[in-house]
């Protein structure tokens, strides 16, 4: 699996895009976007609603095909968006256990404690609040141990303390040689984070 091999060799981690253009329906959202991220790089994508932040994240993840241009990823990508990919009917612990098993059973107890998920492990996912679900998805992302993190509005629904925690986790990920692209309209306090104004590429 990609997730397992990605962590061992962080030196070759990279994410680049060349002449990227994105079309939704019959509208081109942005065009001519190029970026180049190496180990330890963090990028904050900002822009108004509907300008294509989420579409850019999905293009970088390889889940959507670009209208023009190309994306190159070296290393596995992990995605955090508004869909937690956790079965609503299952207790949180079981729902997370599926992804932990798929990603090779890393020790997750420490991660759960850090994210404050311990008391929630027996609660069915559908009873969790937006913020709790976001923290659970974050645990899934950490467990995947992918070197490239693509976060779409990771702070939505989080309280101030949790938002600070997310910024710290992203900071640690990048300090460890990972790459992180964050699409968010909220400020994101990570040291040495780059800034990409999507409006500059609006077509």
């Amino acid at each position: 699996m990609q997730g397992g091999s990605g962590t061992s060799d962080r030196a070759s981690v990279g994410l680049s895009a060349r002449g990227l253009a994105c079309r939704r329906g019959d509208r081109v959202l942005f065009a001519g976007l190029s970026l180049e991220l190496g180990p330890g790089a963090a990028l904050h994508v900002v822009g108004a609603n509907g300008i294509g932040k989420s579409s850019l994240i999905r293009l970088l993840a390889g889940l959507a095909r670009p209208y023009a241009g190309a994306v190159r990823r070296e290393g596995a990508a992990g995605l955090l968006d508004e869909r937690p990919a956790l079965e609503p009917a299952l207790p949180l612990g079981k729902a997370l256990a599926f992804w932990a098993a798929a990603d090779g059973h890393r020790a997750m107890a420490e991660v759960h404690r850090m994210l404050g998920l311990d008391p929630l492990l027996d609660v069915p996912v559908r009873y969790l609040s937006t913020g709790q679900r976001k923290r659970a998805a974050l645990a899934r992302l950490i467990g995947q141990a992918a070197p490239i993190w693509l976060l779409d509005e990771p702070l939505n629904g989080l309280d101030a303390a949790a938002a600070e925690l997310v910024a710290r986790i992203v900071g640690e990920h990048c300090a460890g040689g990972g790459i992180c692209v964050v699409a968010s309209h909220q400020p994101f306090a990570v040291p040495a984070i780059g800034r990409l104004e999507l409006a500059e590429f609006a077509a």
Binding site: M1, Q2, L63, A76, L79, L86, A102, D103
Partner: peptide, 13 residues
């Protein structure tokens, strides 16, 4: 599809 399970699995190859 609504939960994004297909996306997460695709990212894992």
């Amino acid at each position: 599809l609504e939960l994004g399970v297909f996306d997460q699995l695709a990212l894992r190859g």
